[in-house]
Write a protein that binds this DNA or RNA. Structure first.
Length: 457
RNA sequence: GGAGGGGUGGCCGAGUUGGCCUAAGGCGGCACCCUGCUAAGGUGUUACUCGGGCAACCGGGUCGCGGGUUCGAAUCCCGCCCCCUCCGCCA
């Protein structure tokens, strides 16, 4: 794979444009509208694979009406422009005639203003409907209503056979004194946890290891803001559909990021990238904040589902023709982390009904957790094709000079809490101690095992 | 938070007494020509986007964002965002 230097994109993409600020009205490109126009049945069929299709008929109807209005209004504008130019002439030769012409154009302007209000209403409804349409799934994605149609692509590693009961991490971690759920809940509520001592260090070691691991494969490490504005959220597809699941800083209209994908993808919003510098690959550590509004009562114990967690995220920007090869490569990079940690996992190709709304194709990596006796999703790797690029205005310049939408991808590499679960439950010994994987020991001053404390605090 | 300066096409950068700005020029890119040597030169071309059209092409919009004045706004007025300098405050 092509190695990049940290400075490779700066000259081409330095953002002299004002950053994507709230209040900007960059509209969703109507390119995908053209696709809907030219092949409404094909689009409808593909959207159906993901679930119920809403708003498509309304969208098509509005589009026809909007375009009719546009033709009318643009004709008037053309008239106004030519008449205005004539007035400049008349003012020099026949002032009286100029006054008459002014009155005429003024009337035209008023008519224009009325029609513009209608058009604007349609346009904004069209945009809203477009922003709510999910991405269409790739042909290679298995069609199915739910997780039952997911395909196990491969499995790696064998769960260690042990002659003692492997207890869940919330018992193991508490006994080791490295997980403190009670105090997390005390200071922030249920779903927040405090890592202590070797647990805190272990998490930090995991983050550092993963960043180094990906950096060695050619990713540029970035450390973005952990909040993002509405525009960035809309660009990556969190808004409008998932707004209710995010923490919001009301005074600033900012959101706590639900994933590093948001700020890192937004890095190149409203930019035209140089084709020859692609792919751009980034890796970022960020915390992630999720309200988990629809998940009350699910996975309430332990680290499986928490409101705040850490994650190392990979994000890639590619040419359209390269994105599916990139997807496979990103999956392999995420897998390589689990392999380095010697954790057994499987790779799932998600079905149309189970995958994310924004994705064209998605793989999940699930690690085996013997304590809770479950496969846990530690990574989700997705190709968004041009879905996010269209919303965000991420394009590339072809050698031919043409500007076209880029493809974006991302994948966890990995999510920390569930990785921690797997380490605790797979590395557990009969005495309650936990083995530290070889690759992490340099980050922990050589620590090879976490032992139960002599006395509890 | 206060004062001042600024935001123009992939990049740099002219343009603010409103009207051939239908945005100069340069860089970069692309095409061709010349040239025989790890180079340079010449000519042409090159913003994005929407609508109409098979197409050539025609028309609309876009000079940070939104609104206003006007027959007409990059240019004038108002609000907001961002960047820079100085002051204040502060990790």
């Amino acid at each position: 794979m092509q190695a990049r230097t940290a400075s490779s994109w700066t000259s081409a993409t330095r953002c002299s444009c004002s950053p994507a600020t709230a209040g900007s009205t960059r509209r969703a490109s109507l390119l995908d509208l053209k696709r809907i126009r030219s092949d409404p049945d094909g689009v409808r069929e593909k959207l159906r694979r993901k679930g119920e299709v809403t708003g498509l008929d309304r969208l098509i109807e509005l589009d026809v009406r909007h375009r009719e209005g546009l033709r009318e209004i643009e004709g008037w504008r053309a008239q106004r422009n030519t008449r205005s130019r004539e007035i400049a002439e008349l003012l020099r030769r026949e002032p009286d005639a100029a006054e008459a012409a002014k009155a005429e154009v003024r009337a035209l302007g008023e008519r224009l203003r009325e029609r513009e209000a209608d058009l604007e209403a349609w346009r904004s409804e069209i945009e809203d409907l477009l922003l709510r349409l999910p991405n269409t799934p790739h042909e290679s994605v298995p069609v199915g209503a739910d997780a039952a149609s997911n395909v196990v692509v491969r499995t790696w590693g064998d769960p260690p056979r042990r002659n003692f009961e492997v207890r869940p991490h919330w018992e193991v971690g508490v006994e080791l004194g490295i997980l403190d759920f009670e105090r997390g809940a005390k200071l922030a509520g249920s779903g927040f946890v405090v890592l202590r001592g070797a647990g805190a260090r272990l998490q930090r070691a995991l983050i550092a290891f993963m960043l180094d691991h990906h950096r060695a494969a050619g990713f540029e490490e970035v450390s973005p803001p952990f909040v993002a504005n509405r525009q960035a959220m809309r660009g990556s597809g969190q808004i409008p559909k998932m707004e209710a699941d995010m923490y919001r800083v009301e005074s600033e209209d900012l959101f706590l990021i639900p994933t590093g994908e948001v700020p890192v993808t937004a890095l190149h919003a409203d930019e035209i990238l140089d084709e020859q510098r692609l792919p751009l690959r980034y890796v970022a550590y960020t915390p992630c904040f999720r309200l988990e509004a629809g998940a009350h009562g699910r996975d309430t114990r332990g680290l499986i589902r928490v409101h705040q967690f850490d994650k190392v995220e990979m994000v890639a920007f590619t040419r359209p023709e390269d994105s599916y090869a990139e997807l496979e490569w990103l999956v392999s990079r995420a897998e390589s982390v689990l392999q380095a940690l010697a954790l057994p996992y499987r790779v799932l190709l998600l079905s149309t009904g189970d995958m994310g709304a924004n994705n064209a194709k998605q793989y999940d990596l699930e690690v085996w957790a013997p304590g809770v006796q479950r496969w846990l999703e530690v990574s989700s790797v997705s190709n968004f094709e041009d879905y996010q690029a269209r919303r965000s205005g991420i394009r590339l310049r072809r050698r031919s000079g043409e500007a076209t939408l880029a493809h974006t991808l991302n994948g966890s590499g990995l999510a920390l809490p569930r990785t921690l679960i797997a380490l605790l439950e797979n590395g557990l010994g009969p005495d309650g101690s936990v083995v530290v994987p070889d690759v992490l020991r340099p980050y922990l001053g050589g620590l090879a095992r976490i032992d139960p404390p002599q006395e509890r605090t």
